[in-house]
């Protein structure tokens, strides 16, 4: 790994940590702010307008998530014909008991149901520069022509897991049975079925408008 690559990764890691810190709180209410977009890699209006972007952005409003995990079960039933939270493109279960971080002595007040009850779904950010796509040795992760959604081309995917290792949000997983990588295709099923409206798809028009307002 080159120095630059390493630096990039580090940046991403710290970006991610920063994001997680504010994530729960700031995305609450689903307000798209410049700060949030910044954390997703979009720093100015040109970024948003100039890149083949995905239809929108799937976010989880942590103030509304009750940890029912219907999103995980529906996601995999709809996309895979089985129920398999491990490969769900929305991931809640792993954050359920103790939040996203490691368990510490402060677990009774940290995130999770053993703490302050904050549970949030991890969602694919349809990154501006998708690390998953960059890492894929066979170029199997592509932007869909019309929507820009980053999707796995299963005919190309060799199931090596490089994408899963690269994704800073750890939301892409290789299916142990089909040996194909499974990532969010913005099918909208989780959003439609979330019993509290915690998951939302913010269309890019709104994102762009927000960016223009702020820029």
């Amino acid at each position: 790994m080159s120095q630059d690559e390493k630096k990039g990764l580090l940046e991403k890691t710290s970006t991610r940590r920063e994001f997680l810190k504010i994530g729960c709180k700031s995305i609450a209410g689903a307000a798209v702010s410049m700060t949030v977009l910044g954390f997703l890699g979009y720093s100015n209006a040109a970024d948003v307008t100039g890149f083949p972007l995905s239809t929108g952005l799937l976010i989880s409003d942590a103030s509304r998530c009750t940890g029912c995990r219907r999103c995980e079960t529906i996601c995999t039933m709809f996309n895979d014909g089985k129920t398999d939270p491990y490969i769900a493109r929305v991931k809640v279960g792993r954050n359920y008991n103790f939040g996203r971080d490691n368990i510490t002595a402060a677990y009774r007040t940290n995130d999770g149901v053993f703490g302050n009850f904050m549970v949030a779904a991890d969602t694919c950010k349809q990154c501006k520069e998708p690390a998953c796509a960059a890492a894929c040795p066979v170029g199997a992760i592509e932007a869909q022509e019309k929507t820009g959604t980053r999707v796995v081309n299963e005919s190309k995917c060799v199931g090596c897991g490089a994408c899963a290792a690269a994704c800073p949000w750890a939301v892409i997983t290789v299916d142990g049975e089909t040996k194909k990588s499974k990532k969010c295709v913005l099918c909208y099923q989780c959003v439609k079925n979330c019993p509290t409206g915690s998951l939302k798809l913010i269309p890019w028009q709104e994102v762009k408008a927000a960016v223009r307002r702020h820029a």
Binding site: S63, R64, C65, T66, G67, C68, R69, R70, T73, V113, N116, F117, M118, P195, T196
Partner: peptide
Amino acid sequence: TVRMGGCHACPIRCHST
């Protein structure tokens, strides 16, 4: 009330947190 909670795959959240 922080939120409601409950069991796996249940849309009815009957535990209060």
